[in-house]
Design a binder for these strands. Structure first.
Lengths: 226, 226
DNA sequence: AGGCGTTTTACAACTCTTTCACAAGTCTCT
DNA sequence: AGAGACTTGTGAAAGAGTTGTAAAACGCCT
């Protein structure tokens, strides 16, 4: 569960926010002052900080830079009554990731929180998976989806696809593919690669005769364009 | 260098933004329509997208979802004239990472761009790549871009270009080029080099009859001026 | 044996390379 | 400066080589 710290001295706002965020499934704590915030930050991992700039005691910018100094790397969303550009500039320069001016819509704030969390480190370690066009490849499940529909690839073709994906964008020579997929000492013809590429195109390309992703590089090999 | 795509149909705004971003050291391209944007997205890696919602042709939201469908994972900052919360909600739901309403301060926008890039994946390890004029050459992808458009070079011509790039600025004699590109024991005429140089000029020079980069050194060979 | 996946083969289609011929340009020598 | 010799640019065309593709041959497993 994602942990969010709200640093806000006005109880109504803080509690309202907290309630809304908890409905969304976040684990929320509130600090009513900069000192309290720094204390909370020491207590454990944080995934996001919502920081009001107008605080009693330590100034909001100061809180932010002290948080960063303590190694808090979580995205910080600043809440402020001041909409002047100069204030925003100061906020971003201090290391904020977003700056929302009061009054704000709760929905917008929730979505901004969501957007920030989406970009930060994922909750569960993501598995080896790729997408290109309408194709989704999951290495662990060994599955390939085309337009959400499962596509049945032969094992060799799947390995070939993985090899291309692992070097997506780069050209892979036929012999490189042979080494990667067939192993160091295989006695297989380079033309075999072509046969499997044909299978991939037939099953994954909209128009196999005019491939948009599995591209031929004449006299060299193949390249996967994502 | 971070690559930013601006999708904006109003030239003044697009060019102003572009200039500002370029001063900050970003590599900026502009698409004036959704179609053009999708096309650009196919051409290569993007680190950030700035998307105006009001576009001719394909709707901005549609552009965003199609970009995502193509596997474009870069953060997207929406620019919009509409400040209603309902619009913002729609934008974030579509997968945007930030939403800025017009009119906006340039400074704020630059900082938001910076904040988004800071969070996204670190700059990719630099690979063997060169630029001269409006030409970009990527050895690993074996791709050549002219004004962001992919140029199709024949294999031999590409090798020749690499040889010239490897010694950019220096004169390379025809026989040196033959040795480098064709191999130690080739029985090919030196005139063959000329034929491939002609291809390079035809495809890469603005005015092939008056080359500005691939220069002839009379009685010796060729020289690439970057 | 039958089914499945893999590899090879054969041929057609296609792309690239090289050479040639002539035009245009550059240099050298008087 | 001008003539002649030589060098380079360029488009076309032959042919050499590469790739796409379908089908056959092979081998493995049940």
């Amino acid at each position: 569960m994602r942990r969010i710290l709200i640093i806000e001295d006005e109880p109504n706002l803080a509690l309202g926010l907290r309630a809304n965020l908890e409905v969304e499934g976040y684990d929320v704590s509130v600090a009513e002052s900069g000192e309290a915030a720094l204390h909370s930050a020491d207590a454990g991992r944080l995934d996001l900080v919502i920081l009001d700039l107008m605080l009693p005691g330590i100034d909001g910018f100061e809180v932010l830079s002290r948080l960063r100094a303590r190694g808090v790397d979580a995205p910080v969303l600043i809440l402020s009554a001041r909409a002047d550009e100069i204030d925003k500039v100061r906020g971003f320069r201090a290391g904020a990731d977003d700056y929302v001016t009061k009054p704000f819509g709760v929905m917008e704030l929730l979505l901004r929180v969501q957007a920030l969390l989406r970009r930060s480190s994922p909750e569960s370690p993501s598995r080896q998976a790729w997408r290109f066009g309408d194709i989704e490849v999951d290495a662990e499940r060994r599955s390939v989806l085309r337009a959400r529909e499962e596509v049945a690839l032969t094992p060799r073709a799947f390995e070939l696809l993985l090899a291309l994906l692992a070097n997506a964008g780069a050209v892979m020579a036929r012999h490189e593919l042979l080494r990667t997929v067939w192993g160091y000492d295989s006695s297989v013809t380079t033309r075999t690669v072509d046969a499997h590429v044909a299978e991939l195109r037939r099953k994954l390309e909209v128009n196999p005769a005019e491939p948009r992703h599995i591209l031929t590089v004449h006299k060299v090999g193949y390249r996967l364009r994502t």
